[in-house]
Amino acid sequence: MRIGYMLSSEEYPPQQLLEQARGAERAGFDALWISDHYHPWVDAQGQSPFVWSMLGALSQVCRLPVTTAVTCPTIRIHPAVIAQAAATTAVLHDGRFVLGIGSGEALNEHIFGDAWPAASVRLEMLEESVEVMRKLWKGEFVHHRGTHYTVEQARIYTLPEAPPPIYVSGFGPKAIDLAARIGDGYISTMPDAEMVRRFRDNGGGDKPCQGSFKAAYAETEEAGAQIAYEKWPNAGVPGELSQVLPSPRHFEQAAELVRPEMLKEAFVCGRDAEAHVEMIGRFAEAGFDEVYVANTGPHYEALFDLYAREVLPRVR
């Protein structure tokens, strides 16, 4: 299994994200995820650098493969622009780039005042956006008039040797089926064997499946849970709220119902290597090929040391 590290753009400024990328490579991680947000989930996270600037910078500081987890190519940025950004990023990373996409959250996509579509419409838009991007990656002039997008006499000139793979995030049955049908791989944040099985049985076959979990390194489990609660209380917000709430202050209001002990279920807290190994094992048993850990809080160098010494040697 490939073990990667997630760069949380919602929490760390650009310089620290680059520092973490270097640290992850030194520690022996195999790959990187990086989140794509316009806003953080809550103000306590406090950051949200532009992912395409970060991806260009990352290409100059490390050689690890990187996946966006995930970009929404439907509302805030037109898929024709995402196609150009992804092509340039793949060139900079010498082909070590995966475009991870999803149907998005109102938190990031509502900023121009567009209506937030129903889930079924967002999936339609996602499917058409993939069609547009793959047309453009052929290097020819594209004329596209679809249900949701128009592209007129557009051509991308700077292209990688091969088009970037597209991995699709999905949690509900319809989204998983779409990922299986149009994706080159699958992305999820839950070690759920049924989700992986549905993806593989409905057209995904042996395509790669990526998963992730969050950690809060600290001297004790309680201290880690407190860090998680202060920085990521939104991780305890249930159901579809993460897709429909429009701003960090609304997530903060919803998170008033979350208690620190609830974050122990969503995070691996503390410094127990066995807890990390166990969580990675849950993803492996569910059928994932790759799993990415995201640290929250200031102690990411200590997490890198823990993985280099005790976690990565064991899981390999």
Rank of each mutant, 00 (worst) to 15 (best):
I3L: 13
G4I: 04
E10Q: 12
E10P: 02
Q16M: 14
G23W: 08
A27S: 09
G28L: 06
G28S: 10
H39F: 14
Q45S: 12
G46Y: 02
W52G: 11
W52K: 09
V61K: 04
L64G: 03
L64R: 04
P65C: 06
V66I: 15
T68Q: 08
V70G: 01
P73Q: 11
T74H: 10
I75C: 05
I77V: 15
A83W: 00
A86P: 10
T88A: 14
A90T: 09
V91S: 10
L92Y: 09
D94V: 00
G100T: 02
G100L: 08
I101L: 09
E105V: 01
L107V: 08
E109F: 01
I111V: 14
W116T: 13
W116P: 13
A119L: 13
V121F: 14
L126M: 13
S129Q: 11
S129H: 07
V130F: 05
L136V: 03
W137G: 10
W137A: 09
R145G: 13
T147H: 14
H148P: 06
A154T: 15
T158Y: 10
T158W: 11
L159C: 12
P165W: 02
S169K: 12
S169N: 09
F171W: 14
G172S: 15
P173C: 11
I176G: 05
I176D: 10
A179C: 08
G183N: 06
G185H: 05
I187E: 03
M190S: 15
P191E: 06
A193T: 08
A193L: 04
E194W: 08
M195C: 06
R200W: 05
N202G: 07
N202Q: 08
G203Y: 05
D206H: 11
K207P: 04
P208I: 03
C209S: 07
G211T: 07
F213A: 01
Y217H: 05
G224H: 03
A225C: 11
Q226D: 12
A228F: 03
A228V: 05
E230C: 09
N234C: 12
V237K: 01
G239F: 14
L241G: 06
F251P: 00
F251D: 01
Q253F: 06
Q253R: 14
E256A: 08
V258K: 00
P260I: 00
L263E: 08
A266I: 06
V268F: 01
E278A: 15
M279T: 11
E285S: 12
E285F: 02
E285W: 05
A286T: 07
E290P: 09
V293G: 00
P298I: 11
H299Y: 15
D305I: 01
L306K: 03
Y307P: 09
A308H: 14
R309V: 01
E310F: 03
V311M: 04
